[in-house]
Write a protein that binds this DNA or RNA. Structure first.
Length: 401
DNA sequence: CCTCCACAGGAACTGATGGCGT
DNA sequence: ACGCCATCAGTTCCTGTGGAGG
């Protein structure tokens, strides 16, 4: 494996020797060849896509499973293989992959897909057109080049959410696009974390979307351990991860949802930590500290990425911890005065509060106080120091913390 | 048993941004 | 040059509600 030369130099300078022999393996998505415990699923996915080899359109496909159980990995691997098979025989298959979580809007998602089809610049501007226009251009392109396309839409539940907001029925159009296509085909593969997502779907879409369904089960702790072992073999130099560390790592991320991605990330961070400390092995303690560090980093970046008023609001929650919306709003208005910001309406504040609540930085609890009405009490879930540290760099907030 | 509080949270709208087609 | 389209942050107006206190 080639290694970034800068990395290599820095590594050598730092410690003389590295714990790693191939770092990349410890990035979950980089090594699609290492997939364990997913033989059944691989088989099923392949089977349902088999018609592609026979030059016809396979059924649309829905794939379910919790995060980090290898859904995307398996789908990508199967499609890669299929693509390789048909590469030479004048039956090109185009793979389009988009993640609905990364593209925040419907428009963005379509543009991303279109871009992978080779539409660019003037043909597909990143703004300005109507959604149906973009859609038509994609269809036109498929038809014109007689393409056989497979749309892989990751986290399709998010897409469904966007659609329900805007009222545009793109999923329906997508699933029925084949009826419009004279040449070329379009297959939709939806990947969803949410097993209940189906119920919220338009029945018309549902019937054509879920022609086939595959459910991925969670990994067990045991399986996660094997997955980690497999990666360790490639990633680390031999005998540099202690058994206790491995056990802890798989237990920590395995017990909850069987999330292999988290386990691998954790191992990587722990490894880097151990290396930096010039330790010869990755120990249990490294895993523990890595887990804490990841948690804290996540919080800090989340805090920093909020816009000003959300930050003020978090400070207000901190000051008026455990208090009702009304009190927090007062506290927030004070902060606005101090920082000379225009204060927003309470309606917006409640909305922001529930947005922040969704990310888990604060928790809210609805309480009924009889005569004294209904309100929601919010609490910070992280400790105040983390917040202070994170906000210190923000100039407008400097003197508040 | 009824009342009435203090908000929750939905819906519809506005104005700004950015970029299209013609 | 003009109208149009999507999106985002924010506003205005609104209806709904569990239960303490009367």
């Amino acid at each position: 494996m080639t290694k970034d030369p800068i990395d290599k130099l820095l590594d050598d300078a730092q410690s003389g020797k590295s714990l790693f022999q191939n770092r990349e393996v410890l990035h979950y998505s980089f090594i699609p060849n290492i997939i364990l415990h997913r033989e059944d699923e691989q088989k099923k996915v392949t089977q349902s896509l088999l018609p592609l080899l026979k030059k016809s359109r396979p059924s649309n496909l829905l794939v379910y499973g919790k995060p980090g159980v290898g859904k995307t990995l398996v789908v990508k691997k199967v499609l890669d293989k299929i693509q390789e098979r048909v590469k030479d025989n004048s039956f090109p298959i185009h793979l389009l992959y988009a993640n609905s979580k990364e593209e925040t809007t419907l428009y963005g998602l379509l543009v991303k897909l279109g871009g992978q089809l080779g539409l660019k610049g003037k043909q597909l501007p990143s703004t300005g057109l109507s959604i149906s226009e973009v859609f038509n251009r994609i269809i036109a392109k498929i038809e014109e080049d007689e393409l056989n396309t497979v749309f892989v839409v990751d986290e399709i539940d998010f897409l469904a959410e966007l659609i329900s907001k805007s009222g545009k029925d793109i999923l329906y159009s997508l699933t029925r696009a084949n009826e419009r296509l004279k040449k070329g085909t379009l297959t939709l593969i939806g990947i969803s974390n949410d097993l209940t997502f189906k119920e919220r779907l338009d029945p018309r879409v549902l019937s054509s979307m879920s022609e086939e369904e595959i459910v991925f089960t969670n990994y067990t702790v045991e399986q996660i351990k094997e997955i980690l072992e497999e990666r360790i073999k490639v990633a680390f130099i031999p005998n540099s991860v202690e058994a206790a560390a491995l056990n802890l790592c798989s237990a920590m991320s395995g017990q909850e949802h069987g999330d292999a991605r988290r386990a691998i990330d954790l191992l990587r961070v722990a490894g880097e930590m151990a290396e930096r400390e010039q330790s010869d092995t990755v120990k249990e303690d490294h895993i523990r500290r890595a887990s804490l560090k990841m948690e804290e980093d996540k919080e800090t970046t989340a805090l920093n990425s909020y816009p000003l008023h959300e930050k003020l609001l978090i400070l207000a929650v901190m000051k008026a911890g455990g208090n009702t919306t009304g009190e927090i709003y007062q506290s927030y208005k004070n902060l606005c005065k101090i920082t000379r910001q225009k204060e927003l309406t309470q309606r917006r504040i409640t909305q922001m509060l529930s947005e922040i609540e969704m990310t888990g930085l604060i928790t809210g609890k609805i309480i009924h106080q009889g005569m004294h009405g209904r309100t929601k009490k919010f609490n910070l879930t992280l400790n105040a120091d983390t917040v202070k540290k994170a906000f210190k760099e923000d100039l407008t907030l400097e003197d508040l913390v």
